[in-house]
Design a protein around this nucleic acid. Structure first.
Length: 105
DNA sequence: ATAATGACTGGGG
DNA sequence: ACCCCAGCCATTA
């Protein structure tokens, strides 16, 4: 566990500013593997609570929460994002064009 | 080393 | 918009 890949993922996710969200594919691209979106999800899956990593700011390319397809974590993720200013529509989606993280630039 | 799995993504019907 | 399918990748058994 905790391979270099995971650490890179954690580092990138930690860079996401509050009030903004990034997609799994985007994180994957930042670590050098734009095709490893699934692996990014896997990395966050094994991430313990209180690790300091804002995993809740990572969502799928559709701007929706995919957290294990359902569960208490999904609801909590939505709540945390709303608290940061990220609003969801009726369909549970965010406006990536507005909240999407553009990167460090 | 091979097979299965999963918090993904994009393309096609 | 919705549903289904195939491709991709690192980790785990």
């Amino acid at each position: 566990m905790a391979s270099d890949f995971f650490r890179q993922v954690y580092r990138v996710v930690s860079m996401i500013p509050a009030g903004q969200v990034a997609t799994y594919g985007q994180i994957a691209a930042y670590v050098g593997n734009p095709r490893a979106a699934r692996t990014v999800g896997w990395a966050l899956h094994g991430l313990p609570a209180g690790s300091g990593v804002p995993w809740h700011r990572v969502i799928n390319a559709q701007g929706a929460i995919s957290t294990s397809r359902e569960g208490s974590r999904a609801a909590q993720q939505r709540a945390m994002l709303e608290e940061e200013g990220v609003l969801f529509d009726e369909r549970g989606r965010t406006d990536l064009a507005r909240y999407g993280w553009k990167g460090l630039r």
